[in-house]
Design a protein around this nucleic acid. Structure first.
Lengths: 253, 253
DNA sequence: ATCTGCGATAAAGTCATACGATACGGACAG
DNA sequence: CTGTCCGTATCGTATGACTTTATCGCAGAT
């Protein structure tokens, strides 16, 4: 399931060697290749898998430790942490999920969280937006309608639209959830690519209505419309997930 | 402002050397000792501050990199990242904030986010709770009323109460926000310690009403009552913040 | 036979050193 | 004053040795 990831820059640098190792390990953990037990014998993996120095390996492990994926203890080895210890909201962790098979439960959870947060964020954005904020939001919207459906530029504009709304809410912690919103958007676009155009025009209309409410500075309206947008997005995504679930073996965690 | 931190176990191990270095650096960054520019000359800090090997130092930096606090570039040095790049929702990052002076804007932001998320979580908890979930929630509540006000056991029970509700919502991403809820609770308890008892009984009553709604499996009621609980908690905290702001110099970022 | 305690051991943690890559900045020449 | 070049500072990576720690097994005692 290797797919294009349009996430805003994560903290991990894939150019660096340790970054590649971290990514490789992380994807293996998230995919379930490594369960929640003991894992990779340090030196063995070091020498065999990819010839990499202990330094690079250890720094990769530290990176994963910081995100709660693994926990290393002096004697028992480096274990994969239980899933409820992972920082699922971390941009890197979210991004790594795109490299693994879609986890329906997880995607539903993300949408659910988004449905709690983003309408409220839209309300605040309508009330607190600065002229610069509004310009960013409008730029995102225009980027969506000025580009062909499902084009990379369109997706980027979509993400920019939602990020701009979160930024306009003037709440630093809400901005940290931008990666959650980005992730759900990307999942929905990815999963329903090649689908009919009905969903697409609906989505555009939903965005326009949100933008309109924010322009009017109508908080409640913005929240309601953003709520509708998220619901629509979720429904189309679920439609595909249900369809895909019937196709092959439904391996839902 | 060093205070007792009752957070659930973070991923950082303070027993390890690199963990102490990471904590030290992180607090310095969050406190604003290091701004968003160049920072600590590697070797100089290495040799002077605390005699620590390059390995420990580098792994500490990698840990902070993973949380978005710093970004190291091959030549220009290790810079402190701009604040909007920090993973403010990370348990460690939240925890480190307790070591710095209270940042009113940040605390307000945390409460705002909590007010968006926790009522919805309470609604789900009322609808999806298992018997085990309910037992956990009730255990938390009883821990609050069976212990003296502001005792450590009471605070732990308070945190457990809210964590149990988040867990009962059966949404893994909501559980990741438990640290946000914990942080706001601790800020409110910390800031208004030594205050009058009125707030305390109000808080207990708020909790009881939430529990009652969850027992009744009334989602809307649970959401409304949790919303009231958060509002009350925020108001008492703001009361103190405003009062404290008049006392000494209001250095609010 | 079960429990207790101590030591061997394995793995992570830490330290020291070395070399390579790179970007910043200053020196020198035009 | 400007442009080029080289030195240097700093991070990235590699390697080897030593230390700390916690687990496991063995031995002894109850």
């Amino acid at each position: 399931m290797r797919v294009r990831d349009f996430s805003r820059p994560t903290t991990l640098n894939p150019d660096r060697l340790f970054g590649q190792v971290a990514q490789k390990l992380a994807v293996a953990i998230i995919s379930g290749t490594f369960k929640a037990g003991e894992l990779l014998p340090n030196e063995a993996d070091l020498k065999s898998e990819i010839s990499v120095s202990r330094t690079a390996y250890r720094e990769a492990v530290k990176y994963l430790t910081a995100k709660g994926l693994v926990e290393a203890r002096p004697k028992s080895g480096t274990r994969v942490a239980p899933r409820d210890g992972w920082n699922l909201l971390d941009p890197d962790v979210l991004s790594w999920h795109f490299e693994a098979d879609p986890n329906e439960k997880f995607i539903r959870d993300l949408f659910e969280l988004r449905s709690f947060v983003e309408p409220s964020a839209a309300r605040l954005a309508a009330l607190r937006r600065t002229p610069a904020d509004l310009a960013r939001i409008q730029a995102g919207y225009h980027g969506m309608i000025d580009n062909p459906p499902y084009a990379e530029a369109t997706i980027r504009a979509d993400l920019a639209f939602h990020e701009a709304i979160l930024a306009a809410a003037q709440n630093s912690t809400l901005q940290c959830l931008a990666s959650v919103v980005s992730a759900t958007i990307q999942w929905s676009l990815l999963l329903k690519s090649g689908d009919d155009q009905g969903f697409y025009v609906t989505s555009l209309f939903d965005h326009e209505r949100v933008l309109d409410a924010i322009i009017q500075r109508d908080g409640d309206l913005a929240a309601a419309r953003m709520s509708a947008l998220v619901t629509d997005s979720l429904n189309t995504t679920l439609t595909f997930l249900a369809w895909a679930g019937q196709q092959n073996t439904p391996k839902i965690a």
